[in-house]
Amino acid sequence: MASWIGIEEFVAVATTGSFVGAARLLRLSTSQVSRAIRQLESRLDAPVLLRTTRKVTLTDTGRALLEPLRKLVAERDEALAAASGGNNPKGDLRMTCSIGLGERFIAPILRRYAVDHPQVNVVLDLTNRIVDLVGEGYDIAIRTGNLTDSSLMGSRIASRRLVLCASPGYLAQRGQPQSLNDLAQHDCLVGTAEAWQFDVEGEKRSIYPRPRWSCNSGDAIASAAIAGMGLCQLPEFYVADAIADGRLITLLDDIRRADEPVWAVYPQRRHLLPKVQLLIERLKAELGPALARR
């Protein structure tokens, strides 16, 4: 429909801050995005974007149009989703999650989801970096702790526990810490989280241990702890088996941080799409029990 040409492309450029980001979000080429916006500007007889080699900014006309057009695109998506078969998900679904949680839990859940919904094409990107969902064109991400990005919506789908632990051999040589102050005297093994979290007399405390050894793999940190290299604080699923069979011993349990939330987060304009709704429902049903068993 000619009257729609340029509208979604303009909203995408304004949202992502670039033509490249908009093209990625819409799964188009940058030339297609640029051409569509030029057609929109021709119909308006006014520019909506100012383009330089460094950045893209909105004109006065663009600023006036952005929110009404953003709402128009969102309402269109929701109406089409509702009319396309109710809870029958279809199309591409791009999801991102941290590597450890993703490999153990999210990938199997998403695999079962894809089997049950053959009209959905699934891409799962496992990475420990914080992905820009809008700018990089993702539908949903799994994140833990407090949510800080107000542009995203979130549904709590599970909880996870952080555990401080060390091997019996290490503790026999170095002694068992009795307080947070004692941690400064120990070798610390640090993963992707630079801060270790505790609750002391109802107050949240974060400490930043000086690592003797660090790695961005939770499995590698757990293995180092089992080998007697030092203390680590990790999500329980990394160390549950080693704790159960005595290869690791939990420490400072009396000031362990309360279980932290696990969230499914997603751009606002996608939260009513059936493919996202049904995946969130499945994550709530399956991830929480899976983590609890660990």
Rank of each mutant, 00 (worst) to 15 (best):
Met1Cys: 13
Thr15Gln: 11
Thr16Met: 11
Ala22Cys: 14
Leu26Cys: 08
Arg27His: 10
Thr30Leu: 00
Ser34Trp: 03
Ser42Thr: 15
Arg43Lys: 14
Ala46Ser: 11
Val48Thr: 06
Leu49Val: 00
Leu50Asp: 10
Arg51Asn: 10
Lys55Ser: 15
Lys55Pro: 03
Leu58Ile: 01
Leu58Tyr: 01
Gly62Leu: 11
Arg70Thr: 10
Arg70Pro: 03
Lys71Val: 05
Ala74Phe: 08
Leu80Met: 11
Leu80Thr: 09
Ala81Trp: 05
Ala82Val: 15
Leu93Tyr: 06
Ser98Met: 01
Leu101Asn: 12
Arg104Gln: 07
Phe105Arg: 12
Ala107Ile: 06
Leu110Cys: 14
Arg111Tyr: 03
Gln119Met: 15
Asn121Tyr: 00
Thr127Lys: 03
Asn128Met: 03
Arg129Cys: 01
Ile140His: 03
Gly145Pro: 06
Leu147Trp: 10
Asp149Arg: 12
Ser151His: 09
Gly154Cys: 03
Val163Glu: 04
Val163Ile: 08
Pro168Ser: 07
Pro168Gly: 04
Gly169Ile: 04
His186Asp: 04
Asp187Cys: 03
Ala195Gln: 02
Ala195His: 00
Ala195Gly: 01
Trp196Pro: 09
Glu203Pro: 03
Arg205Ser: 05
Pro209Gly: 05
Ser214Ile: 11
Ile221Glu: 08
Ala224Ser: 14
Ala225Cys: 06
Ala225Ile: 04
Gly230Pro: 03
Leu231Glu: 03
Leu231Trp: 05
Leu231Gly: 04
Cys232Pro: 12
Gln233His: 05
Pro235Met: 03
Ala242Arg: 07
Arg256Ser: 07
Asp259His: 15
Val265Asn: 05
Leu272Pro: 00
Lys275Phe: 02
Leu279Lys: 09
Glu281Gly: 14
Glu281Met: 13
Leu283Pro: 05
Ala285Phe: 13
Ala285Arg: 15
Leu287Trp: 05
Pro289Tyr: 06
